[in-house]
Amino acid sequence: MIDLTLIGIGTGDPDQLTLAAIRAMNAADLILLPRKGGEKADLIAVRRDMCARVLTGATRTVEFDLPVRRQQGDYLGAVQDWHDAIAACWAEQIAVHLPDGGRLALLVWGDPSLYDSTLRIADRLRAQGMALRVSVVPGISSLHALTAAHAITLNALAEPVVITTGRQLRDHGWPAQADSVAVMLDGGCAFQVVDPTGVHIWWGAYLGMAHQALIAGSLESVGPRIVAKRAALRARHGWIMDVYLMRKERG
């Protein structure tokens, strides 16, 4: 039996680790740390730093190379294939490093429940017959890191929030009945498809990390700044993770 704990670790700041996360990390026999290629070395470095700071016992850490998702063809099909490949990597590491079972932990960026597929990948292992018990330690999500960085609320008073992706915003526009829209997984500034009139945006990249960047203002005035800033940051670091919240002004 493998006891798998998925631990939300926030968005890059080791101080975002909860006491529950620290306890879970130290209770594990093994923590698997994914490498995502040289241009995303910052991400594995953050995980290494967190482990170095909080591990006090015999927990082992093992790094492995994460498969790369293909960019061509059907998007959902590519994601499904990618998840299959990741599940195969997990199974291989478990067979090598926990052949007799034990307590395994994975450190999940942000929170495991919000636009993250780690739980779905774990389901694949169970579907393949692995004896697997899964538990989750919640973490600070990128949305909460964003609203904290800008010192704002996620929702307007008594109004709903729609959480969506850049792909959905680009394909379908502003969600119906939404006062506030939070956008994640946006590879190309999808807010450019939105009529900017009366819309305020709060944007953040590398939240919780040393090179965190923030821009806020009316979409009409700061939208071009965000596009330019995002391109410059991606060129400088080789990768970018960003998120933003938009809200329509009343009246």
Rank of each mutant, 00 (worst) to 15 (best):
G101A: 09
S113F: 09
I226Y: 08
V162S: 07
L185Q: 07
A178H: 05
T61W: 03
P160T: 11
V137Y: 04
P196R: 06
P175E: 03
P14I: 02
G129T: 08
V96C: 05
V243M: 10
P196T: 04
T61Y: 03
D74W: 09
L4Q: 08
K248G: 10
V137G: 02
I86N: 00
V96R: 09
I86P: 04
G208Y: 03
L76I: 08
E63Y: 03
G198P: 13
G217P: 13
T165Q: 05
Y244C: 10
A148L: 02
H211C: 11
Q192N: 07
S180V: 14
A85L: 10
M130C: 12
D49L: 12
T153N: 12
A24C: 13
G217M: 05
L32K: 06
E249H: 14
A45W: 13
D81I: 06
G110P: 14
R60P: 06
L30H: 12
D42S: 09
R47E: 02
A28W: 15
P175I: 03
T18N: 10
W202D: 11
W109P: 05
D65Q: 06
K36L: 06
H83M: 15
A216L: 05
L30P: 07
Q168R: 15
R126Q: 12
G198C: 06
H200P: 00
T197F: 01
R103G: 06
A190W: 07
A41N: 12
L104W: 04
A231V: 07
T147D: 04
E63C: 03
V62Q: 15
P160I: 09
V136Y: 02
A20L: 14
Y75F: 13
L157C: 07
G188E: 10
A28V: 15
Y244K: 06
G223M: 09
A210T: 14
A148M: 02
Q128V: 01
E92R: 09
G217I: 06
A105I: 14
G223H: 05
T59R: 10
M209G: 00
A88Q: 07
W82N: 06
T11P: 11
R225T: 13
L219W: 05
I163P: 02
Q192E: 13
W82M: 00
Y75A: 02
E220I: 04
H144G: 00
A228R: 13
A231I: 12
D81V: 07
